[in-house]
Protein backbone atom coordinates (compact mmCIF):
# COMPACT_ATOMS: atom_id res chain seq x y z
CA UNK A 1 0.00 0.00 0.00
CA UNK A 2 1.35 3.42 -1.00
CA UNK A 3 0.25 6.63 0.65
CA UNK A 4 0.81 10.11 -0.76
CA UNK A 5 -0.04 13.38 0.96
CA UNK A 6 -1.63 15.93 -1.41
CA UNK A 7 -2.90 18.31 1.26
CA UNK A 8 -1.64 18.62 4.82
CA UNK A 9 -3.00 21.97 6.00
CA UNK A 10 -5.90 22.35 8.39
CA UNK A 11 -8.85 24.71 8.32
CA UNK A 12 -7.78 27.02 5.50
CA UNK A 13 -5.62 26.70 2.42
CA UNK A 14 -2.48 28.76 2.95
CA UNK A 15 -0.41 28.96 -0.24
CA UNK A 16 2.65 31.15 -0.04
CA UNK A 17 6.36 31.31 0.26
CA UNK A 18 6.40 30.49 3.94
CA UNK A 19 4.33 27.28 3.62
CA UNK A 20 6.07 25.73 0.62
CA UNK A 21 7.63 22.74 2.36
CA UNK A 22 4.88 21.56 4.68
CA UNK A 23 2.28 22.62 2.14
CA UNK A 24 -0.65 24.98 1.88
CA UNK A 25 -3.36 22.69 0.50
CA UNK A 26 -6.02 21.32 2.81
CA UNK A 27 -6.56 17.65 3.65
CA UNK A 28 -6.22 15.09 0.90
CA UNK A 29 -4.39 11.76 0.96
CA UNK A 30 -4.09 9.20 -1.83
CA UNK A 31 -3.96 5.52 -0.89
CA UNK A 32 -3.01 3.06 -3.58
CA UNK A 33 -3.13 -0.69 -3.12
CA UNK A 34 -0.52 -2.94 -4.69
CA UNK A 35 -3.01 -3.82 -7.48
CA UNK A 36 -3.68 -0.14 -8.24
CA UNK A 37 -6.97 0.18 -6.37
CA UNK A 38 -7.10 3.86 -5.38
CA UNK A 39 -8.77 5.57 -2.45
CA UNK A 40 -8.78 9.30 -1.78
CA UNK A 41 -9.06 10.38 1.83
CA UNK A 42 -10.83 13.71 2.06
CA UNK A 43 -11.36 16.24 -0.69
CA UNK A 44 -9.62 19.36 0.53
CA UNK A 45 -7.88 21.61 -1.95
CA UNK A 46 -5.09 19.06 -2.36
CA UNK A 47 -7.44 16.87 -4.40
CA UNK A 48 -7.19 19.26 -7.35
CA UNK A 49 -3.62 18.31 -8.26
CA UNK A 50 -4.29 14.66 -7.50
CA UNK A 51 -7.15 14.68 -10.01
CA UNK A 52 -4.97 16.18 -12.70
CA UNK A 53 -2.45 13.40 -12.42
CA UNK A 54 -4.73 10.38 -12.29
CA UNK A 55 -5.08 8.16 -15.33
CA UNK A 56 -5.93 4.58 -16.27
CA UNK A 57 -8.70 3.93 -13.80
CA UNK A 58 -12.38 3.18 -14.04
CA UNK A 59 -13.28 3.36 -10.37
CA UNK A 60 -12.29 5.75 -7.60
CA UNK A 61 -13.44 5.90 -4.00
CA UNK A 62 -13.37 9.13 -2.01
CA UNK A 63 -13.66 8.69 1.76
CA UNK A 64 -14.70 11.84 3.59
CA UNK A 65 -14.09 12.08 7.32
CA UNK A 66 -16.56 14.95 7.72
CA UNK A 67 -17.98 17.82 5.76
CA UNK A 68 -16.15 20.87 7.05
CA UNK A 69 -15.06 23.00 4.12
CA UNK A 70 -11.36 22.22 4.37
CA UNK A 71 -12.23 18.57 3.68
CA UNK A 72 -14.63 19.03 0.76
CA UNK A 73 -13.68 22.26 -0.93
CA UNK A 74 -11.74 20.54 -3.69
CA UNK A 75 -14.50 18.12 -4.60
CA UNK A 76 -16.00 20.31 -7.31
CA UNK A 77 -12.58 20.64 -8.92
CA UNK A 78 -11.76 16.92 -9.05
CA UNK A 79 -11.50 16.10 -12.73
CA UNK A 80 -12.56 12.44 -12.56
CA UNK A 81 -16.01 13.58 -11.42
CA UNK A 82 -16.51 15.12 -14.85
CA UNK A 83 -15.39 12.08 -16.86
CA UNK A 84 -18.16 9.93 -18.34
CA UNK A 85 -17.63 6.23 -17.81
CA UNK A 86 -15.72 6.66 -14.58
CA UNK A 87 -17.29 5.14 -11.48
CA UNK A 88 -16.82 7.36 -8.42
CA UNK A 89 -18.00 6.37 -4.96
CA UNK A 90 -18.08 9.01 -2.23
CA UNK A 91 -18.30 7.73 1.34
CA UNK A 92 -19.00 10.03 4.26
CA UNK A 93 -21.04 10.70 7.37
CA UNK A 94 -24.70 11.55 7.19
CA UNK A 95 -26.30 13.54 10.01
CA UNK A 96 -29.33 12.56 12.04
CA UNK A 97 -31.50 14.64 9.69
CA UNK A 98 -29.76 14.64 6.29
CA UNK A 99 -28.11 11.95 4.21
CA UNK A 100 -24.68 12.50 2.65
CA UNK A 101 -26.22 13.68 -0.63
CA UNK A 102 -28.32 16.28 1.15
CA UNK A 103 -25.39 17.50 3.21
CA UNK A 104 -22.96 17.72 0.26
CA UNK A 105 -25.59 19.50 -1.79
CA UNK A 106 -25.53 22.38 0.62
CA UNK A 107 -22.06 23.19 -0.68
CA UNK A 108 -22.37 21.84 -4.22
CA UNK A 109 -25.22 24.12 -5.24
CA UNK A 110 -25.75 27.86 -5.73
CA UNK A 111 -25.00 30.27 -4.23
CA UNK A 112 -21.88 28.59 -2.81
CA UNK A 113 -20.98 26.66 -5.99
CA UNK A 114 -22.24 26.81 -9.58
CA UNK A 115 -22.17 23.06 -10.23
CA UNK A 116 -24.58 20.64 -8.56
CA UNK A 117 -23.97 17.01 -7.70
CA UNK A 118 -26.28 15.97 -10.54
CA UNK A 119 -24.07 17.85 -13.01
CA UNK A 120 -21.09 15.55 -12.51
CA UNK A 121 -20.71 13.37 -15.60
CA UNK A 122 -19.18 10.36 -13.88
CA UNK A 123 -21.26 7.52 -12.50
CA UNK A 124 -21.55 8.82 -8.94
CA UNK A 125 -22.66 6.80 -5.92
CA UNK A 126 -22.89 8.27 -2.44
CA UNK A 127 -22.62 6.10 0.65
CA UNK A 128 -23.72 7.06 4.17
CA UNK A 129 -21.23 5.56 6.62
CA UNK A 130 -22.55 6.17 10.12
CA UNK A 131 -24.27 2.78 10.27
CA UNK A 132 -21.24 0.97 8.86
CA UNK A 133 -18.38 -0.58 10.77
CA UNK A 134 -16.44 -1.13 7.59
CA UNK A 135 -16.38 -2.23 3.97
CA UNK A 136 -13.99 -3.63 1.39
CA UNK A 137 -12.75 -2.00 -1.80
CA UNK A 138 -10.68 -4.44 -3.83
CA UNK A 139 -7.87 -5.65 -1.58
CA UNK A 140 -8.36 -2.78 0.88
CA UNK A 141 -10.28 -3.38 4.08
CA UNK A 142 -11.75 -0.16 5.48
CA UNK A 143 -12.86 0.20 9.10
CA UNK A 144 -14.82 3.25 10.24
CA UNK A 145 -15.54 4.76 13.63
CA UNK A 146 -16.94 8.10 14.79
CA UNK A 147 -14.39 10.30 16.57
CA UNK A 148 -14.54 13.44 18.68
CA UNK A 149 -14.87 16.50 16.46
CA UNK A 150 -17.79 18.92 16.10
CA UNK A 151 -20.52 17.45 13.91
CA UNK A 152 -20.66 13.92 12.48
CA UNK A 153 -17.03 12.92 11.96
CA UNK A 154 -15.35 9.59 11.40
CA UNK A 155 -11.84 8.23 11.14
CA UNK A 156 -10.74 5.43 8.85
CA UNK A 157 -8.42 2.47 9.17
CA UNK A 158 -7.30 1.00 5.87
CA UNK A 159 -5.61 -2.37 5.77
CA UNK A 160 -4.01 -4.34 3.00
CA UNK A 161 -2.82 -7.67 4.28
CA UNK A 162 -0.91 -7.00 7.48
CA UNK A 163 -0.23 -3.32 6.72
CA UNK A 164 -2.54 -0.77 8.32
CA UNK A 165 -2.97 2.98 7.90
CA UNK A 166 -5.09 4.99 10.36
CA UNK A 167 -6.37 8.36 9.19
CA UNK A 168 -7.84 10.69 11.84
CA UNK A 169 -7.14 14.19 10.55
CA UNK A 170 -9.55 16.11 12.81
CA UNK A 171 -9.72 14.81 16.34
CA UNK A 172 -9.86 16.11 19.88
CA UNK A 173 -9.65 12.99 22.05
CA UNK A 174 -8.65 15.03 25.11
CA UNK A 175 -11.78 17.20 25.07
CA UNK A 176 -12.59 18.08 28.66
CA UNK A 177 -9.72 16.06 30.09
CA UNK A 178 -6.32 16.88 31.53
CA UNK A 179 -4.88 13.69 30.09
CA UNK A 180 -6.12 10.99 27.77
CA UNK A 181 -7.90 8.12 29.52
CA UNK A 182 -5.64 5.39 30.85
CA UNK A 183 -7.93 2.69 29.51
CA UNK A 184 -7.81 2.83 25.70
CA UNK A 185 -11.39 1.56 25.47
CA UNK A 186 -12.43 5.01 26.65
CA UNK A 187 -10.22 6.85 24.16
CA UNK A 188 -11.84 8.21 21.02
CA UNK A 189 -10.23 6.76 17.92
CA UNK A 190 -8.21 4.09 19.68
CA UNK A 191 -9.74 1.12 17.89
CA UNK A 192 -8.87 2.70 14.54
CA UNK A 193 -5.28 3.50 15.44
CA UNK A 194 -4.26 0.53 17.58
CA UNK A 195 -0.99 -0.95 16.30
CA UNK A 196 -1.24 0.87 12.98
CA UNK A 197 1.88 1.01 10.87
CA UNK A 198 1.13 4.61 9.93
CA UNK A 199 -1.07 7.03 11.87
CA UNK A 200 -1.95 10.29 10.13
CA UNK A 201 -3.38 12.42 12.93
CA UNK A 202 -4.50 15.93 13.74
CA UNK A 203 -1.73 17.99 15.35
CA UNK A 204 -3.07 21.47 14.84
CA UNK A 205 -2.07 23.24 18.04
CA UNK A 206 0.93 23.62 20.27
CA UNK A 207 0.42 22.99 23.98
CA UNK A 208 0.34 26.76 24.46
CA UNK A 209 -2.31 27.32 21.78
CA UNK A 210 -4.65 24.50 22.81
CA UNK A 211 -6.24 26.05 25.94
CA UNK A 212 -7.75 28.89 23.91
CA UNK A 213 -9.11 26.43 21.33
CA UNK A 214 -10.73 23.76 23.52
CA UNK A 215 -13.81 22.36 21.81
CA UNK A 216 -12.73 23.36 18.32
CA UNK A 217 -12.12 19.70 17.56
CA UNK A 218 -8.35 19.51 17.31
CA UNK A 219 -5.41 18.13 19.22
CA UNK A 220 -2.38 19.66 20.79
CA UNK A 221 0.96 18.14 19.96
CA UNK A 222 1.18 16.68 23.46
CA UNK A 223 -2.17 14.97 23.02
CA UNK A 224 -1.06 13.44 19.74
CA UNK A 225 2.04 12.03 21.37
CA UNK A 226 -0.06 10.51 24.16
CA UNK A 227 -2.54 9.13 21.65
CA UNK A 228 0.12 7.55 19.44
CA UNK A 229 1.84 6.09 22.48
CA UNK A 230 -1.34 4.50 23.80
CA UNK A 231 -2.22 3.20 20.35
CA UNK A 232 1.27 1.72 19.94
CA UNK A 233 1.63 2.88 16.36
CA UNK A 234 4.87 2.44 14.45
CA UNK A 235 4.99 5.80 12.65
CA UNK A 236 3.13 9.00 13.52
CA UNK A 237 2.48 11.62 10.87
CA UNK A 238 1.35 14.88 12.55
CA UNK A 239 -1.13 16.42 10.09
CA UNK A 240 -3.65 19.24 9.67
CA UNK A 241 -1.18 22.02 10.37
CA UNK A 242 -2.64 25.25 11.66
CA UNK A 243 -2.88 27.96 8.97
CA UNK A 244 -0.81 30.30 11.13
CA UNK A 245 2.11 27.87 11.36
CA UNK A 246 4.79 28.67 8.81
CA UNK A 247 7.47 26.26 7.65
CA UNK A 248 9.93 27.83 10.06
CA UNK A 249 7.54 27.48 12.97
CA UNK A 250 6.75 23.86 12.10
CA UNK A 251 10.47 23.09 11.87
CA UNK A 252 10.78 24.42 15.40
CA UNK A 253 7.73 22.58 16.68
CA UNK A 254 8.52 19.20 15.19
CA UNK A 255 12.31 19.29 15.28
CA UNK A 256 12.40 18.23 18.89
CA UNK A 257 9.99 15.36 18.29
CA UNK A 258 11.82 13.97 15.30
CA UNK A 259 15.04 13.97 17.30
CA UNK A 260 13.56 12.27 20.37
CA UNK A 261 14.81 8.78 21.02
CA UNK A 262 12.53 7.93 23.93
CA UNK A 263 9.45 7.46 21.75
CA UNK A 264 8.47 3.98 20.67
CA UNK A 265 7.54 5.23 17.20
CA UNK A 266 8.93 7.42 14.45
CA UNK A 267 7.59 10.93 13.96
CA UNK A 268 7.43 12.13 10.36
CA UNK A 269 5.64 15.50 10.12
CA UNK A 270 3.25 15.69 7.19
CA UNK A 271 4.65 17.49 4.17
CA UNK A 272 2.78 17.94 0.94
CA UNK A 273 4.07 15.46 -1.62
CA UNK A 274 5.48 13.02 0.92
CA UNK A 275 4.97 9.35 0.12
CA UNK A 276 5.00 6.28 2.33
CA UNK A 277 5.16 2.64 1.37
CA UNK A 278 3.57 0.26 3.85
CA UNK A 279 4.44 -3.38 3.57
CA UNK A 280 5.00 -6.21 6.06
CA UNK A 281 8.57 -4.98 6.50
CA UNK A 282 7.39 -1.64 7.87
CA UNK A 283 6.99 1.92 6.62
CA UNK A 284 9.35 3.45 4.10
CA UNK A 285 9.39 7.04 2.96
CA UNK A 286 8.27 10.30 4.39
Amino acid sequence: MRVRLWGTRGSLATPGGDTMRYGGNTSCVEVRAEDGTTLVLDAGTGIYRLGQGLSDFDRLDILLTHLHMDHIQGLGFFEPLFEPGVEVHVWGPESSTLDLRGRLSRYLSPPLFPVRLRDFRCSLTLHDVMRLEGFRIGPLEVAIAPVIHPGPTVGYRISEGAAALAYIPDHEPALGLDRLPQNPNWMSGWALAANADLLIHDAQYTAEEYPSHVGWGHSSLDHVLQFATRAQVKTLVPFHHDPSHTDAMLDGIFGEWVARRDLAFHVVPAMEGATFHLDPGGVKGG
Binding site: A145, L177, N185, M187, A191
Partner: peptide
Protein backbone atom coordinates in the same frame (compact mmCIF):
# COMPACT_ATOMS: atom_id res chain seq x y z
CA UNK B 1 -10.26 -4.07 18.92
CA UNK B 2 -13.44 -2.31 19.92
CA UNK B 3 -13.44 0.83 22.02
CA UNK B 4 -16.51 2.37 23.59
CA UNK B 5 -18.90 4.22 21.31
CA UNK B 6 -18.24 7.91 20.79
CA UNK B 7 -21.48 8.91 22.52
CA UNK B 8 -20.46 7.12 25.73
CA UNK B 9 -16.93 8.51 25.54
CA UNK B 10 -18.19 12.07 25.12
CA UNK B 11 -20.76 11.67 27.89
CA UNK B 12 -18.11 10.28 30.21
CA UNK B 13 -15.80 13.18 29.44
CA UNK B 14 -18.60 15.66 30.11
CA UNK B 15 -19.65 13.91 33.32
CA UNK B 16 -16.07 13.96 34.55
CA UNK B 17 -16.17 17.78 34.34
CA UNK B 18 -19.43 18.26 36.27
Amino acid sequence: MHGRGIELILMRQLASCL
